[in-house]
Design a protein around this nucleic acid. Structure first.
Lengths: 69, 69
DNA sequence: TTACATTCGGCAATATATTACTTATTTATT
DNA sequence: AATAAATAAGTAATATATTGCCGAATGTAA
């Protein structure tokens, strides 16, 4: 899970739902500054912060067994 | 993703691999104090810290569409 | 151009995660 | 019981995440 990929997932889903960063900020109770930092892959969010965002975006974080390379 | 569940996943996998918290700490470069706090669900780790642990445990963090309830 | 909405980023303040050090507690074994 | 290994937890210091405030940049439309 690269931070840059995570940012893209959040941004894409937010756009799919037609939400601005500001609206997502209000819904998730995460600062807009934090949101755009995460979307750009420049932040290293905590699980709690990330989960609040993902909840608003109808997404979930799960742990899986790693692929064998 | 509840923090307590996450802790159980990490603890169970660590035991499966026969690693002590100390060994996992050395392998993942995460402080042992941080590890047992996470395992007990008392910590709110960052993505980077969590990913370092999961890497050592052959686990991955992914984002999925949330189940419809 | 102007105006507006949206996103980006610098800066400082606050909150909190992480660490190191130390001691306590648990658990297993003899 | 005693000993050792592993885990838990308290404290303090440091690093960093989060926030708020502000202005800059970007894109869109009139």
């Amino acid at each position: 899970m690269e931070l840059i990929q995570l940012g893209h997932i959040i941004r894409d889903k937010r756009n799919e739902l037609g939400l601005t960063q500001e609206v997502l900020s209000l819904q998730s109770d995460v600062a807009i500054k934090t949101i755009h930092s995460i979307e750009l892959g420049k932040a290293n969010p905590s699980i709690k912060t990330l989960t609040k965002l993902l909840e608003s975006l109808q997404l979930s974080l799960i742990v899986i067994n790693k692929k064998i390379n």
